[in-house]
Amino acid sequence: MDEEYDVIVLGTGLTECILSGIMSVNGKKVLHMDRNPYYGGESSSITPLEELYKRFQLLEGPPESMGRGRDWNVDLIPKFLMANGQLVKMLLYTEVTRYLDFKVVEGSFVYKGGKIYKVPSTETEALASNLMGMFEKRRFRKFLVFVANFDENDPKTFEGVDPQTTSMRDVYRKFDLGQDVIDFTGHALALYRTDDYLDQPCLETVNRIKLYSESLARYGKSPYLYPLYGLGELPQGFARLSAIYGGTYMLNKPVDDIIMENGKVVGVKSEGEVARCKQLICDPSYIPDRVRKAGQVIRIICILSHPIKNTNDANSCQIIIPQNQVNRKSDIYVCMISYAHNVAAQGKYIAIASTTVETTDPEKEVEPALELLEPIDQKFVAISDLYEPIDDGCESQVFCSCSYDATTHFETTCNDIKDIYKRMAGTAFDFENMKRKQNDVFGEAEQ
């Protein structure tokens, strides 16, 4: 370990593993360490099931009705991949897709007046949907046509809207959309967690709705994908990429100290040895004095023996409960997957309800979601602090990732990755940087 590296990475969460992969592909010498004996950090999948019970201090362990412990891979952080989103792009560019198998999530649902409705995925579904009345549908269709044709580089498509100054509230007004449709559009399509976006320039919202539609167009059922064997497969896929390009991995490796000289990182000390480096990437748990708390998320993992009611017996789905429907500031989400994804025993389902904490009784906040899941065989409640770095790391060369937020997709995580890359490399992130180099010394032969 007593060696000189360009970059040392602490923690094998998804953000850290993707950055480690990119740095290795770009010719950097990388050492990647984790104090845990497993990959994934906060974003790991726990197996066998006995391990999950232990982690949540349920000492009696799983009953026999849960089947074989080894058949379970339970995500600690519930997220899906947008089919046309940035993480899929990263997987394709790096060819990490060859280590993973994905399934399309069967449906996306939205909560309205105590019931759940399928988010329409085709024009026919939209016309048949009970989510809105006849005239509302016509106006909504006009709005969707506007979004589909919108091109930020072609003012002819703006229809009198200025993407940089017109607020989204004004765009909704222009198409005369009612409150329910606005809730549905902002939260189930643009996937905002709160209503803060309404008074911001509309460009980002329009682009988010386009991303949803384009992702949906790829597979038809929903815009989301999920990897077989759980999300823990993602960091491992990128760790393989890093290793192929010469990255060194050490799990179960305690970090005793991060060594600084004149305010700059110069190395990491572990078990009496020092590895030197020019730059350091880590998750917040490794540098508690360089991060601040930015809120909390509650996630309740529920094991069920039945599909969720009114989802047409889907073996995977997402449910969004827009905040307006339950008098909150932030949406509540449910991600459900099952034995069909090799993450649970035969006939079992895993539904994870999550939201940003707003009160001193977080469990009560998630109740509307839990009511949709009854009866629940077993619950595991996790309340996590969200951390963000206190500075950009440019001076110390210590670059810290943000905690995983309450969103049900990876777009915010990818933004964090691109942002850290830019601060480390001094140049904007470009997907081309992730391409495997042809015929290089570490390149794998085609399968």
Rank of each mutant, 00 (worst) to 15 (best):
S222C: 10
M424T: 11
Q179E: 05
L304C: 05
S121F: 08
A217N: 12
V334L: 07
E204V: 07
G11V: 01
E273A: 11
C414G: 07
R436C: 05
E51Q: 04
V268A: 03
P368L: 08
V161T: 12
K437I: 00
K142I: 04
D313A: 05
V119A: 10
E374F: 10
D176C: 14
Q296W: 08
L234P: 02
S330A: 10
K278V: 14
K142S: 02
C402L: 00
D313G: 11
R169I: 14
G267N: 07
G113K: 05
D6Y: 00
N315D: 09
A340S: 04
T412A: 09
R218H: 14
A275H: 14
G107V: 08
D195H: 04
D256R: 02
D180Y: 07
F102V: 09
D256C: 12
S45W: 09
K293I: 12
A275G: 07
T355P: 00
K221D: 15
I390A: 15
S20E: 14
I376F: 00
G85K: 05
Y245N: 13
L131P: 07
K329E: 09
E365I: 03
G272N: 09
S44F: 08
R240I: 00
K278D: 15
E106D: 08
K329T: 07
Y349H: 09
P254L: 07
S354V: 11
V381I: 06
I303N: 09
R169Y: 14
F135S: 08
N342K: 09
L14P: 01
L231W: 02
Y172I: 14
L14A: 14
M168H: 00
V96T: 09
D170G: 10
F109T: 05
D419E: 00
C282R: 02
E106A: 02
D183N: 05
R98C: 06
F380E: 06
Y111A: 05
F109A: 12
K422T: 06
L19V: 05
R218C: 13
I321D: 07
I22T: 09
A445T: 08
K418H: 05
L231S: 08
L14Q: 08
G178Y: 04
I259P: 02
Q236R: 03
Y212F: 03
D385G: 10
T427A: 11
T166I: 07
K29S: 10
M33R: 04
K379E: 07
Q325H: 07
S121Y: 00
G133V: 07
T248I: 10
V334M: 04
L127M: 10
N73Y: 10
I300A: 01
Q447G: 13
D71N: 07
T122V: 02
G107Y: 15
T166P: 14
G41L: 08
T412E: 15
D162G: 07
Y212P: 05
P37D: 04
I390T: 07
F431P: 06
S401C: 11
G232E: 00
L280T: 00
K118H: 01
T194R: 03
Y339H: 10
G246A: 04
W72C: 01
D2N: 08
G426A: 04
M168K: 12
E125T: 02
D392C: 13
E125L: 05
R35H: 12
V110M: 09
N415C: 14
V145A: 11
A382E: 10
E271G: 10
E358V: 01
S24D: 10
P78L: 04
V268S: 14
